[in-house]
Write a protein that binds this DNA or RNA. Structure first.
Lengths: 117, 117
DNA sequence: TGGTTAATTAACCAATTGGTAAATTAAAGG
DNA sequence: CCTTTAATTTACCAATTGGTTAATTAACCA
């Protein structure tokens, strides 16, 4: 998979709250499809579809144990997401810096207008 | 916007390579719709739609300058993405640790089988 | 005023998505 | 062997997505 396609698939997989919840559950450890479905008000086939999306994005791997098909978290693709988003960190931090500057300036002005407070 | 919905919208917006390229371009500075469209082989209305997706996700803001509607990057929502993905860092780092362990083990075995190399 | 440029809106289309219910596969276990 | 349990496949549906072309809005400019 081209690195761009991998990011497309990973971001698309993460855009659904059910799938993010599934990943959060798998962070606690391996789970069967039924166990993963339990917290949600949706059918088993719907969960199967979500798992396929996660699997194609490489975010989970699947095993076999009798009639169960346990899922395991595979966080590898999230490293590219972290790398991608890191490129933009300076932009949101810069914004916070400017907010801090603004608040400091505001406070300084209040000091000048109301020296005894 | 509920925090969950914000993450949904942000991840969905980032799942398209055209939109990620637009953000990368805006990281260089403000740009008009025409300037943003220039690198792509798609129509102006298609760009307008992408910009609406980015705007609803809060990833860009838009101004007015005569007949131009300049776009600016607003990286704020990416902070939540960074925070979310950070929760999983230990999983992919653990994986690398295990790979390192495996490689060390492999090298140790080679040492035992072929001591003079 | 009339023409050009920038951008959006409207209407449409094909493909994808997230869901369902019903049928099927596969293994466990009395 | 038959039933139950786990999960998937199939077929379907409505809504969304990413794109198009044509028409419209809005501002500049000669």
């Amino acid at each position: 998979m081209a690195p761009d396609d991998a990011l497309n698939a990973t971001f698309a997989a993460l855009a659904d709250p059910t799938r993010r919840a599934i990943l959060a559950r798998l962070a606690q450890g391996e789970a069967s499809v039924k166990q993963l479905a339990e917290p949600f008000a949706i059918s088993a086939p719907a969960i199967t579809k979500h798992l396929k999306v996660l699997e194609r994005a490489g975010l989970i791997t699947r095993g076999r144990d009798a009639q169960w098909r346990p899922c395991r978290l595979h966080a590898g693709p999230l490293r590219q997401v972290a790398d991608w988003v890191e490129e933009y960190r300076r932009f949101w931090e810069q914004r916070l810096d400017r907010l801090e500057d603004y608040l400091r300036e505001l406070q300084a002005q209040e000091q000048r207008h109301d020296p005894q407070s």
